[in-house]
Design a protein around this nucleic acid. Structure first.
Length: 744
DNA sequence: TAGTTGGGTTTTTTT
DNA sequence: AACCCAACTA
């Protein structure tokens, strides 16, 4: 029996039609990833295509990783040379090699949303734009929209047509790009734009990649924007072996430029395309599918298809309305704990979905109260946290002194008594000479205006230079440890009475572990590689699956996942569909997008679906009274196990009081909310400067490097430095507090 | 220069 | 409710 026998007819067609353009319209749960991976295996095993010539592109690292793993399990070897990545990493890889052709340095850094905002703030200051009238974010949104459509500043300028606000944006767009270029930085959108630009201006480079990628597969095609479309179109132009997989009903990223026409008009761009529809669902029970079909059937702009299953009717959909969000959370958590007790479900079988990240908080409180393990996916990206960004700014500075933003971020963090006045003076000097901020610091002695700050700047520059030279000898992890010790970052945190100082320290510890595992997984792991990897992780990539925990996430994050038991909470008009979509200029269109989101949510459920809503809910400090979601009302009554009934609890008032005051919260022994919420075990920071229990000549053991002999142990300024000669890993110098060496 | 405080704003979703 | 920022004070 071969891997192809268990496929249905349509799936087989998808696997075997390897030549020419293919559009796979794959409904939710129809096994599209399976078709995609089997197709790749077929290309390699049967068609004898060199894995090197295959490209599979997705949106998240998680999806890419899963795809690679599945292909690996099917083909004997060679799978490691398939190019399986995300759009963004693909672009970075190409640009790292060739972006000098566009006048950038190949050592460019990648700016996240935070950095973009800082840049924009400066641009606005420079152009004297009042950010109270036009907000940075709306300017950035306009620029992002333009970039997604591959509209350059020049093109944008031509399209002003006398429109005042467009004229303003046009100027901002120019300045913003200039600022990025000066810092040798690209934002997320630039990654795509510049890759396309590169291909357009260097046909010989494009040709190389066209020769390489003879077979291209694109997952989640409905979420591609114009830039992504163009990138793929260029790459596929020569061989035209392009297979795109998507579901127009699951297009939920219009707000970030996804162009649903890419999938709807595929046959116009590729008239010879073979279109295959996958409508058999292997995931959910009939009741769940009927509900999904009933809801999505209300959308007008879509390719008609109806999902079916042979999994059986299954249980009905549960619908519950509560007085307020506390009771809603209480019910959901109780229900999950009941299922666990009954043996109906494990914690990891359950997922709670909501429209906005803020809705997680109340559920979290309840989980903590009941002592049930849970994990929140997303929210604030780990790498966007202040302490992490600070450390990364050091690394960026060490790696690429041209990123002024990074240098300015850390110039006075931890405090070195370098204030705004000094920074401005340095900046003036840098601007005058057209050099980078960091280079200006290195020339601090040449700046007469500085006065006694000069010394402080010199100390800073010397420290960075020292890191740079040590970098040659050190590994990545050692460098980070050195940075946090030498700069006194950890010391400052430990000394501070800030409430979440401990959490921050733990986060830094976590960063070190991430660096260590990156170092382990990559040979020749460079600082640049690490910074790049870190810049492109998505919330969902960080999800630990099957940690025996209930998962909480937004409906958007849930796309592509499935769970036996799904809870959709906050099913209220104004929350879901969101107020923004109801109040939009084009509500029909916006609500259709929300409806697709509802469709995505429902079709995550394998067996059991529960929808909940509350009559009353606090949003941004204001109490809102919401009716049940219109989407709920679109579900035929016979699919529900009950009518809408409100549960009223006498205890509600009392219990509300209980878990709003922190003192009354029964914490899990030995832990606290923060570590619990982060889903990690709080490892804490070992004390620094404490004499280790080993000495010169002793045999010790390290988590990563294994056993070795201590060659030297000397008291440094902050902590003991220990030099160990590891049997397999060679000689390493490390701080005793971090090395966590065990005497053997 | 650093820390505090009061006022104003806010994301809905994210690579 | 939470966060960010500008202005004010030590």
């Amino acid at each position: 029996m071969s891997i192809y026998d268990t496929l249905n007819e349509q799936q087989k067609k998808g696997v075997f039609t390897t030549e020419g353009p293919v559009l796979l319209l794959a409904g939710a749960g129809s096994g599209k990833t399976r078709v995609l991976t089997t197709r790749i295996a077929y290309l390699i095993e049967e068609k004898k295509v060199n894995p090197w010539n295959i490209m599979a592109i997705t949106f998240t690292n998680k999806a890419a990783g899963e795809m690679r793993e599945r292909v690996e399990n099917m083909v004997g070897f060679g799978s490691e040379s398939i190019w399986v990545t995300t759009f963004h990493s693909t672009c970075v890889r190409i640009l790292r090699r060739y972006i000098d052709r566009l006048g950038y340095d190949n050592h460019f850094t990648i700016y996240d949303t935070d950095d973009q905002k800082s840049v924009m703030k400066e641009v606005c200051k420079k152009l004297q734009i009042d950010t109270k009238q036009i907000k940075e974010r709306s300017l950035l949104a306009a620029i992002s929209a333009a970039k997604n459509e591959l509209i350059s500043p020049e093109k944008y300028e031509k399209n002003i047509m006398g429109d005042y606000s467009r004229k303003k944006i046009s100027g901002v767009y120019y300045e913003y790009q200039a600022a990025l270029r000066k810092n040798n930085a690209l934002d997320f959108d630039d990654l795509l734009v510049k890759a396309v630009e590169l291909f357009q201006s260097c046909p010989e480079i494009l040709k190389d990649y066209q020769e390489r990628f003879r077979y291209i597969c694109v997952d989640e095609y409905q979420d591609t924007n114009t830039a992504q479309f163009e990138l793929i179109r260029l790459l596929a132009e020569k061989y035209r072996n392009i297979c795109v997989v998507g579901d127009d009903d699951q297009s939920i990223y219009k707000f970030r430029g996804a162009n649903i026409r890419n999938i709807l008009d595929f046959e116009k761009v590729y008239p010879e395309a073979v279109v295959i529809k996958l409508e058999q669902n292997y995931r959910s029970t009939q009741n769940v599918l009927d509900a999904a079909n009933a809801i999505i059937g209300n959308n007008r702009s879509r390719k008609k298809k109806v999902l079916w299953t042979d999994k059986g009717i299954g249980s009905k959909i549960h619908l519950k309305q509560f007085e307020n969000a506390y009771e809603e959370a209480e019910f959901v958590v109780d229900d999950i704990s009941r299922k666990k007790r009954d043996g109906t479900a494990e914690y990891s079988d359950c997922a709670i979905l909501y429209r906005t990240n803020a809705q997680a908080r109340m559920l979290e409180e309840r989980f903590v109260l009941q002592g049930i393990p849970y994990n929140v996916v997303g929210g604030t990206n780990f790498y966007a946290r202040r302490e992490i960004k600070d450390i990364l700014a050091y690394l960026k500075t060490i790696d690429n002194g041209r990123d002024d933003l990074a240098v300015r971020r850390i110039i006075n963090v931890p405090r070195r008594g370098i204030g705004l006045t000094t920074v401005l003076k340095v900046q003036d000097y840098a601007e005058e000479r057209e050099i980078s901020f960091y280079d200006a610091i290195r020339e601090a002695e040449q700046i007469p205006a500085l006065g006694k700050s000069t010394g402080k700047l010199t100390v800073f520059a010397t420290m960075i230079q020292a890191f740079r030279s040590k970098q040659e000898v050190y590994g990545l992890t050692d460098l980070i440890k050195d940075v946090i010790v030498t700069t006194g970052y950890i010391n400052e945190l430990e000394a501070s009475d800030e409430e979440d100082a401990q959490t921050r320290i733990e986060n830094i510890d976590e960063l070190i572990s991430k660096a260590a595992s990156f170092e382990n997984a990559t040979d020749q792991a460079t600082l640049t590689d690490f910074l790049e990897e870190v810049a492109l992780v998505a919330d969902i990539d960080e999800m630990e699956s099957d940690g025996g925990k209930v998962l909480l996430m937004t409906l958007h994050s849930a796309k592509g996942l499935e769970f036996p038991h799904v809870y959709m909470t906050g099913m209220e008009d104004g929350i879901f569909p969101s107020f923004m979509s109801i109040a939009a200029d084009n509500p029909e269109e916006e609500i259709e997008e929300e409806r697709r989101l509802a469709y995505v949510g429902i079709t995550r459920a394998r067996e059991d679906l529960t929808m909940t809503c509350a009559k009353q809910r606090m949003i941004r400090g204001e109490t809102q009274y919401n009716a049940a979601s219109r989407f709920v009302k679109e579900i035929p009554l016979e699919l529900l196990d009950n009518r809408l009934t409100t549960r009223r609890k006498v205890l509600a008032a009392a219990s509300v009081k209980n878990y709003t005051s922190p003192e009354n919260r029964p914490y899990i022994a030995g832990g606290n909310t923060a570590t619990f919420a982060a889903g990690g075990i709080g490892k804490g920071m070992p004390a620094m400067g404490v004499m280790p229990d080993y000495g010169e000549g002793d045999r010790v053991k390290h988590v990563k490097y294994g056993e070795g002999t201590v060659l030297a142990l000397e008291q440094g300024p902050k902590d003991y430095q220990v030099t160990v000669n590891f049997d397999s890993a060679g000689q390493k110098i490390m701080y005793a507090a971090f090395a966590k060496l065990v005497k053997v």
